[in-house]
Amino acid sequence: MSIRLGTGDLARYPFLNEAGEYLRQSGFGWEELDRPDMADIIQRAAERIEAGVSGKVYEKLDRYETEILTFLVTLIMVKSIGMEPVLKKYALAEARRAEKFLTEDLRRQNDAQRQALLSKIFGDLFGLAIDTTEDGRLFKVKVTDYLARSSHFHEQEWKMINRLVSNGNVYLGPDETVRLVRNELAVMINGRVHAMSLPALPKAIKERSDTLRAELAPRYEYRAHSVTEYPPCVKHAIEVMNRGENLPHSARLMLATYMLAIDKPVDEIVEMFKNAPDFNERITRYQVEHLAGSKGSRTKYSVPSCDKLRTENLCFATKDCDSIINPIQFGRRRK
């Protein structure tokens, strides 16, 4: 069935190719943005970016055509600001805005037109086939499609074991189905901004972007941290090692990568392994240097995630871990 998209749909999903097409057909040109009556759009675009970097979602959807245009202006301004963290936060906020609309639409998807639009968005943009259960309350996605996406989420509830799984399908509610692709949407918007080449900017946009950049820059200055205490998994590994007991390979890898990540010198790290029953200084040194990326494959290894450590039974979380996702974050959370 062919899908007719109204301006309402385009305002909610302005990242669809049809939105750009719509503007082209309406004969819009960039130079028009310098017209005084366009100030509102630039103002809305700035609001949209500011909301995004503050972790909020821009809510306005009162004038469809204005919002379609606002979205495109926002992309240009984010590109012009040229700060990666701003782009990242903005893209995520944009994805969360779309998430809200998609969820609403999925809930009302008994309407055939809606259903076609959603299949198009999920299929075209994300390559994800979704199916509904007989009673229409839940959505089915393939186990492999689910895993490819959910495994990058950190909340325990997204682990497949906490899902209803049967015969190769994972059953999800509307909000969960949308959450599954939200990151991809953010990645897509991010990619689109990266791929954009800036036209000669209308003065109004240029000025507003410059002001925004000056406002936002101080938020992203580097803050140094220092480690005062090891996370419990690392402590546990050190204790086992000090007792002279055999520490599994995976735990040794964690211990060494953690110590490298906090900039402990290789000599001191090698020393930590000297109680291992099979200790051989030459081999240990090579392995630590290998992990540091200075020997062998030249790949610097990162500290295994909390998820991975849990699967390997190496996690000894305490309440101080406080929902960190990698041991390296232990004690580093800004209060």
Partner: peptide
Amino acid sequence: GSYRPLDSQARSDLVGYLAGVGLIAES
């Protein structure tokens, strides 16, 4: 073939599922 593209992290989640690791009471 549909399992072929999965990365290490996705396989780790699958291992958790099969091994019975990480079920939360809320589930």
